[in-house]
Write a protein that binds this DNA or RNA. Structure first.
Lengths: 343, 343
DNA sequence: TTGTAAGCGTTATCAG
DNA sequence: CTGATAACGCTTACAA
């Protein structure tokens, strides 16, 4: 209206036919004379007719829109995921509506409400760091609302999850450090309530155990915020004592690793000669820092693609939610760069 | 329905009142008995009633949704902008629908169509690298559809734009290099059809001119793709000849700068002793590389915020499109780090 | 204080 | 081959 947007009614009036005829003509329904079809389509073209998606949604109880709830867009990993989501959604004629929670529980809850209100067809979720109560998601699941979790997955029954093999990634990373001759490997870990953090820690622990290395409790330090600054402070603290210093760091993601590297440089420790470093996630910058950072690459784009494909299948009933509590686990890849290779 | 979602009708039937009464009760309209209000609200609560946003959109011809069209989510700058957009939109009860064009013109055109079909209330656009024809946007503007361009702005009449002062940023950066004693400053420039690229180039040229430095044509090299690899190759080529080598690089963004730094290191040139480097955009990694990269910071988040505020004003008729062809230009900030400071 | 009915744009159903 | 009508969920004159 505001747009002078032509509707099916306008076309009908102009051509002296009924709206149903127009509707059918536009969709090439059988049983409409070619003549009428032609006229309708011509006029539609001329008037720049565009079907009103909102009316369609209402009519069909289907919006061709999926929602994505993530902690933060600016995290490289998440933006990669979104990119994958967008691709698949777009290819299938779906729109993507975005809500970032900024790692806030309340924001997450209200995002869920918004999404439901907006009649979206399904939702992809990676929940916030603060989230320990999953009732808002449970409600959706009970309503059989299509939902797929990725990366950060909840401790709930009957969910469909797409993750990477964090355990395996961490294991490979630490094993690699051990193979390089590092022995006192510390772990800068993530927030404890996230499965991914736990998995990475497990991988770290098992790799050490399998190599007969006994872990000291002080080797595991949580970096809940995952910022560069936090990591610098923690690293400096870790290396304060000159005796029995750690000789390698496995960080739960690259920003933390980069922070650690900055701290090490400030302490005049050489990487990797004195201290080896491996990160997680293969952030954009990781190959560009000095020395280039070894890291565990997560296929973010692929996570987005996969999760979206599954969600669309769910929406279109090709998959059934309860019939198949699904757990897709994608492989990680250890990218060995200079920061962890003894010469 | 599928969700067992309760509607106003359900409530009405259950309480033996009309739907209008329910509607009014829920919105605290005057002239509804407290008793009824209470009952309605109670039941609504119990049934987990949630207004159907789609029906509302249809009724009011307003969707409380804005669209964002950008080249790529994974670019740090754009994800920062989105973050700002999301904040303001969320705070005002608006949803954000996202389309990335992947720098493809066709994709951009179809995104515009989708958005219009979906009755979004307004749109924020940063167009693709490929876009030289602006008819699809022109159409929107002629229809008085609320649209705000940011960062990459078109050559059209009567548009509202939010940009950063690219010219000024570039000028400051190059002036700084000159002040540090660099004299043969090359510019790795962006794609020529983008205003931002032109502006940055102008800033570069003027800074040199104002300092009485004559620019050699071979000092300006276009890096249209802006990838690290492209930049490495170009830099190596630029420094091939040992005589009269450049002594500083001003790159049109940080990835390009980082690529150049990698090339310089490979050539055993020291940064900043032999070659000074300044980038653009202040990517996340820029402070973490070695040496930390001087760069021109663009307030991405603020761009997103500002553009969205203006868009919402437009939508709500607080601002008028043609009455005020607006050009908001935000300031950049030169962040001086080690890569450009002679000791 | 409450109800009736029309309408937002579209399509499915039934009837001609 | 085409038309009338109802319905999706909600709001809002207008009536009562």
């Amino acid at each position: 209206m505001k747009l002078g947007q032509a509707t099916i009614k306008d076309i009908a009036k102009e051509l002296n036919v009924s709206t149903s005829t127009v509707s059918r003509a536009l969709k090439d329904y059988p049983g409409i004379s070619d003549e009428t079809k032609r006229k309708v389509k011509e006029l539609a073209d001329k008037l720049n007719y565009r079907p009103n998606a909102v009316a369609l949604s209402l009519r069909k109880s289907k919006s061709f829109t999926i929602g994505v709830i993530i902690p933060e867009v600016v995290h490289f990993f998440f933006s990669t995921v979104i990119s994958g989501v967008e691709e698949v959604a777009f290819a299938n004629g779906y729109n993507v509506i975005l809500c970032q929670t900024n790692e806030k529980f309340n924001r997450e809850k209200s995002s869920v409400e918004t999404m439901l209100s907006n009649q979206i067809d399904g939702v992809l979720v990676s929940f916030s760091r603060e989230t320990t109560n999953f009732d808002h998601f449970k409600k959706m699941i009970e309503l059989e609302f299509p939902i797929v979790f990725f990366d950060r997955i909840p401790d709930l029954e009957n969910t469909i999850n797409v993750t990477v093999n964090d355990y395996q990634g961490a294991y490979k990373a630490v094993k690699h450090l051990i193979d390089q001759g590092f022995k006192r490997i510390v772990h800068l870990s993530g927030p404890d309530n996230l499965t991914i953090s736990k998995q990475r820690k497990e991988g770290y622990l098992d790799a050490l155990k399998d190599s007969g290395i006994k872990v000291k409790p002080e080797w595991i330090v949580e970096c809940p915020y995952g910022t560069e600054k936090e990591s610098i402070l923690i690293t400096i603290e870790l290396f304060k004592n000159k005796e029995n210093r750690p000789d390698a760091i496995f960080a739960h993601h690259d920003i933390v690793a980069a922070g650690a590297m900055m701290a090490l440089k400030a302490l005049n420790l050489r990487i990797p000669e004195d201290v080896g470093v491996v990160g997680f996630s293969n952030w954009q910058f990781s190959s560009m820092i000095d020395p280039p950072l070894s890291t565990v690459a997560q296929p973010g784009f692929q996570i987005g693609e996969t999760a979206t494909k599954i969600l669309l299948d769910l929406i279109n009933k090709k998959t059934n939610m309860d019939s198949s509590p699904l757990n897709i686990v994608l492989d990680t890849e250890l990218l060995i760069r200079k920061s962890s290779v003894k010469v």
